[in-house]
């Protein structure tokens, strides 16, 4: 994302410091994450200190400060999936790809996230990878599914 585009987004919010969250969200929508260079540009344009932006960006879970992997894995750990053994699935997937929820692996292949209910409770435990839902996952099945992604 180049500086012109960042400036465009900031201008849309009249360069108001109070629009920081909206600006960051909009940038993230296009760029998928918030690299430091972008935050520095935002800090300069909005006249908000980098420390304050850092505070806001780490305060809300919605902001991503590490790059996204090629495949995003969402494992549901809502109540239904949880009682059907989602934790076992999460543990297995963590061991398999070597990262914890919220992280991206070194090859930028996977980003792992847990979430609370994907609305497919009858099919739990549910894993969603790039919009495709894999249902009734056992730890072993989850392993097979994830191995298919490159």
């Amino acid at each position: 994302m180049d500086n012109d585009r960042i400036d465009q987004i900031i201008d849309k919010h009249q360069g108001e410091a109070s629009s920081l969250i909206q600006v960051l969200l909009e940038i993230q929508r296009e760029n998928s994450w918030l690299p430091k260079e972008i935050l520095e540009r935002v800090s300069e344009k909005l006249q908000v200190s980098l420390a304050q932006i850092q505070h806001t960006a780490t305060f809300y879970k919605a902001f991503r400060l590490v790059p996204k992997g090629r495949h995003e894995i969402h494992i549901c750990n809502g109540t239904s999936c949880h009682v059907r053994g989602a934790q076992g699935v999460i543990d297995t997937v963590q061991d398999l790809i070597g990262i914890r929820p919220g992280q991206t692996d070194l090859d930028s292949k996977f980003t792992l996230e847990t979430c609370n209910c994907l609305g497919r409770c009858a099919l739990g435990p549910v894993i969603e990878i790039e919009g495709k839902t894999h249902s009734k996952m056992s730890p072993a099945e989850a392993k097979d599914v994830i191995k298919k992604y490159e």
Binding site: A51, Q54, H55
Partner: peptide, 28 residues
């Protein structure tokens, strides 16, 4: 102090809730 008196904002809070902590902005 860094923000109000020195106007540098070299240090700030990061994260929220029980994980909240202070963190320096390395570049500053």
């Amino acid at each position: 102090y860094c923000a109000e008196v020195k106007k540098k904002s070299a240090v700030g809070f990061i994260n929220s809730g029980v994980r909240r902590e202070i963190s320096f902005v390395p570049e500053i």
